[in-house]
Amino acid sequence: MPSRSAGHDGLLRRSSVGALWSLGVLWGIATMATAAAAATFVLPPLVQPASGEHHEGKVIWADLVTPDVAGAKRFYGQLLGWTFNDIHTGTGDYSVALLDGRPAGGLFQRAMRPGEQRQPAWLTFISVRDVGAAQRHILAQGGKVLSPPRSYPDRGRQAVFADPQGAVFAVLQSSSGDPEDVLAAPGEWIWSSVITRDPDTDAAFYQNVFGYEVFEIPSTDGSTHVLLSTEDYARASLNALPGDTARRHPHWLNFVRVNSATDTAARVEALGGRVLVKPFLDRHGGLVAVVADPAGAPFGLLEWTEADSKEGAK
């Protein structure tokens, strides 16, 4: 007759085997769920047909992270004439914005947690040839990884980082190539600026990571303004945060080309957005403004004519 202690040991062994079996099943379910969630997220190519072009350091994409994709679609659709292709995923809704059939940006749905002191924003994607190499350079220069490199079928490989001053940006190794270097049409992204505490040291960071040529831009307000360039094209500027910088957060700000910043800013307000900076005359002779969509994501408006890109204009 088995002893009471031996019976307990047997029960313990059976329980252990059962627990291990259950763990194996759970692990399998988790792995399958992970694979399924990742597999369902198929983004369209950046360029169709594939361009074969590559422009390192060029801003090639922007994604809006917002708690209200439906509201964002109404707003940007009416403001800029964008249409949308919806992609339903295992982890959230994503919509590709199109202008005349060309991808103009992405809208990603993410619920805002109660009490979350964050704000929706447009995330800027910079072209790289190799995301892994870019990550190594970014870390070596004092940047931080926010989302490690990962691949998306058709889109390519991308990752999200913060520069040493905290401005968030992404890099994208597009598998279909980069958009060609042409003048953006009205309603498309045309320009990007890093609004930062120290443009000088931030310029060194971006130069060392992306190989930019850096030009100091003469300014009349006494603050530092720097331009980043590759292939003889202006790619972005770095501007000092004006005023009380302690309360202000370094960030990338993207600008849409518009025919009239004044009219578009008024339309933003009519559609439920806000004007953060009223239209004012910029260095190129056109107006710029900063506005926010109804969920609070800021973006810029920039007037630009074909003549502004030509030698000896104005």
């Binding site: 997220f41 994604d63 992270v65 982890t91 959230g92 990603f108 979350e116 964050r118 957060h249 800021p298």
Partner: peptide, 22 residues
């Protein structure tokens, strides 16, 4: 396992001080 841009920015964007000359 989702889309790698699943985040909100820190906020605190203020644009006071922008204007002519900036």
């Amino acid at each position: 396992v989702g889309y790698g841009v699943d985040f909100y920015d820190a906020g605190g964007y203020e644009y006071g001080g922008w204007g002519p000359g900036y």
